[in-house]
Simulated scan of single mutants.
Amino acid sequence: MSGTRHLVQLLLPTRDNEGEGFPSEAFEQVSRELTERFGGVTAYSRAPAEGRWKQDAGTGHDDIVVVEVMDENLDRAWWSSYRAELEKRFRQDVVIVRAQPIELL
């Protein structure tokens, strides 16, 4: 199982822009979809991470769940479409989906 792949990480907010929390089923659905497509998924959901960024009037923040998969053939068009779907589903202007090359040892 050695070789170069991509680690794709999705940063999903735990709440919408009005502060309403998403049900655990929303994250389970993402995990099921990614497991079906990529054969496995890792979700860091027990202790949400905190994202912070500069805004016009100060600092914004979100509690986030990080979901990641290893992708052998990075299909950018599919990921772009899936990101757009997640933005609708999680009612966000932007959902961060990022990829980095990794080498399994």
Rank of each mutant, 00 (worst) to 15 (best):
T59F: 15
G39D: 09
L10N: 04
G3V: 09
K88A: 11
A26M: 13
A26H: 10
T35F: 07
L86W: 03
E20I: 09
W79R: 07
D75E: 13
S81Q: 15
W78I: 10
E33P: 00
Q92A: 09
R37L: 14
A99Q: 12
L34S: 02
L7C: 10
A84Y: 02
T59H: 06
L34Y: 06
V95M: 05
P48R: 03
E72N: 06
S45K: 11
A57E: 14
G19E: 10
T35G: 08
H61W: 11
E28G: 02
G58H: 12
W79C: 11
A77P: 06
D56G: 15
D75A: 10
R5K: 14
R15Y: 05
T4N: 10
L74V: 12
V67I: 15
D62E: 15
R91P: 00
Q100A: 15
V30K: 00
V67G: 02
D62C: 00
R89T: 08
G51M: 06
D16W: 04
M1E: 08
R32D: 03
S45H: 11
Y82N: 05
R15Q: 12
D16I: 01
G21Q: 08
P48D: 10
E20K: 14
E103S: 12
N73M: 10
G21P: 11
S80G: 15
W53E: 05
I102P: 00
N17S: 14
V66D: 01
R37K: 14
Y44G: 08
V65I: 15
R32F: 00
Y44F: 15
V65W: 02
E20F: 13
P48A: 10
L10F: 08
S31G: 00
S2C: 07
V69W: 01
S2E: 13
S80F: 13
E87C: 05
Y82M: 02
P23W: 04
G21C: 08
V95R: 03
P13W: 01
V41L: 08
F27W: 09
E72I: 01
Q100L: 13
V30L: 00
R52T: 12
L10S: 00
E20M: 09
T59Q: 12
D93G: 09
H61T: 12
S80H: 12
R5P: 03
R46I: 11
E20D: 14
N73D: 14
P13M: 08
V67S: 02
A43W: 01
I102H: 05
E28K: 04
F27S: 02
